[in-house]
Computed example of a mutant assay.
Amino acid sequence: MNLVESLRAHRLLAIVRGKDPAAALRTVTTLAEVGIAAVEVSLTTTDALTVIERARAELGPDALIGAGTVRTPADAARAVDAGASCLVTPAVVDGLAGIGVPVLMGALTPTEIERALALGGAAIKLFPASLGGPDYLSALRSPFPDVPFVPVGGVDAPAARDYLSRGATAVGVGSPLIGDAADGGDLGRLRERAARFRAALAQDTA
């Protein structure tokens, strides 16, 4: 898959993590039902690999289902075997080149960004984005105009719109969107939050 083009098309990567595997799977499928089809299942989720495997079976081979919080090559190999179509790391991680799927590599500083790109990162997960906010993304885009950035960390709906307006390829959103759904929370409220995010992203393109 072309990760950058997929992220640019989806514009929002939902980050699912929770303690209830069945609820996490329901969260992934509910998001797909309401039009948020790019999802990262964090490996900190209970039985995350099974959630990824079952989500792949339910949503099909073309769905963007990533594995998040990938910290080692062993994590990466297990996630790919489970059906992850991309990997998302919280930091710069060595040893993922040639793993067979694209990597959204975590980085924050210019030095980390350069290293992540040298290690084969297809795009940069700017994390934690909340430390610098949208202004920091704007500052980074001057020396890195062609780097695909995906801010993650503390991104609510207004911030998502702001990051995208400043050139982010997409935004990654966890608890402001997911809430407690992956722990068995109300899926109706998840749908409401998803609608707010989709409306915010629609405003950005207006």
Rank of each mutant, 00 (worst) to 15 (best):
A107Q: 03
A107V: 00
A107L: 05
A107I: 03
L108G: 06
L108P: 04
L108R: 05
L108N: 09
T109W: 08
T109D: 10
T109K: 15
P110T: 14
P110H: 09
P110I: 05
T111V: 10
T111D: 11
E112D: 14
E112H: 15
E112N: 12
E112P: 07
I113A: 02
I113C: 00
E114N: 15
R115F: 09
A116M: 10
A116S: 08
L117W: 15
L117I: 12
L117C: 15
A118K: 15
L119C: 06
L119R: 14
G120D: 06
G121V: 13
G121R: 15
G121H: 11
G121A: 12
A122F: 11
A123L: 01
A123E: 01
A123M: 02
A123H: 03
K125L: 01
K125V: 00
L126Y: 11
L126A: 14
L126F: 08
F127E: 08
P128M: 10
A129P: 12
S130Y: 13
S130T: 15
G132W: 01
G132Y: 00
G133V: 14
G133W: 08
G133E: 07
D135C: 07
Y136V: 05
Y136C: 05
Y136N: 07
L137S: 07
L137V: 07
L137H: 06
A139R: 15
A139H: 11
L140R: 03
R141Q: 06
R141D: 06
R141M: 04
R141K: 09
R141W: 04
R141S: 04
P143N: 10
P143C: 08
F144H: 13
P145S: 03
P145R: 03
D146L: 03
V147H: 04
P148V: 01
F149C: 04
F149V: 04
F149P: 01
V150L: 03
V150F: 02
V150I: 10
P151V: 03
P151Y: 02
V152L: 12
G153E: 00
G153D: 00
G153Q: 00
G153H: 00
V155T: 06
V155S: 01
V155G: 02
V155E: 02
V155A: 01
D156V: 12
D156E: 07
D156P: 12
D156L: 11
A157L: 05
A157P: 05
P158H: 12
P158Q: 14
A159K: 07
A159F: 04
A160W: 00
A160V: 08
R161N: 07
D162Y: 09
D162G: 10
D162P: 08
